[in-house]
């Protein structure tokens, strides 16, 4: 009797990989799927479930389904991928140094001058004191209204 290829094993593995890749490639862009990576985890969980079901039937009905060996290998690989993902999102990104010396609310921000992406020096105190210019070029030009506040976003950088 010809044995079935047990495709859910392979489909499950593809899902596990897709769940992993979906985070950096897509879900990490949106806070709702970024802060708690539920979407990527769900896809991976579905993938692992399918692999489990495929492997289970390969072992319980070997006369009908292939996949004892491939199912075991795929299960181990998928678990490794899922573990790496969980380590990546739940452990490694929390390895941040404490920052006790950062300015607290109520303190005066210490001034600095740094070049922007065109090389033009920008001084914090000058931005704070200057009339407001819209963030978006082409947005209705502000009159002589003062800048109400300045939001500084420090970020890790782009590689």
């Amino acid at each position: 009797m010809k044995r079935s290829w047990n495709l859910i094993l392979w489909f499950g593995f593809v899902l596990a990989l897709a769940g992993f890749l979906s985070y950096p490639m897509f879900f990490a862009r949106y806070p709702i799927t970024r802060d708690v990576p539920w979407a990527s985890l769900s896809i991976m969980a579905l993938g692992l479930t399918l692999i489990g079901a495929g492997a289970a039937r390969a072992f319980t009905k070997p006369e009908q389904y292939r996949g004892k060996i491939s199912g075991s290998i795929l299960a181990v690989l998928a678990l490794a991928v899922a573990s790496a993902f969980c380590y990546g999102v739940f452990v490694s990104t929390k390895q941040l140094p404490a920052s006790h010396g950062a300015p607290h609310a109520g303190q005066t921000a210490s001034d600095f001058t740094l070049p922007d992406s065109k090389g033009t020096p920008v001084t914090l105190s000058a931005v704070i004191d200057s009339p407001f210019t819209p963030n978006r070029p082409g947005a209705a030009a502000a009159s002589t209204a003062k800048t109400a506040a300045t939001l500084l976003i420090f970020y890790r950088g782009y590689w």
Partner: peptide
């Protein structure tokens, strides 16, 4: 840089 955000008012004070 570690990620951090600061909102600074028009007097230069961090709020």
């Amino acid at each position: 840089a570690r990620p951090a955000e600061f909102l600074i008012d028009s007097s230069g004070r961090v709020r």
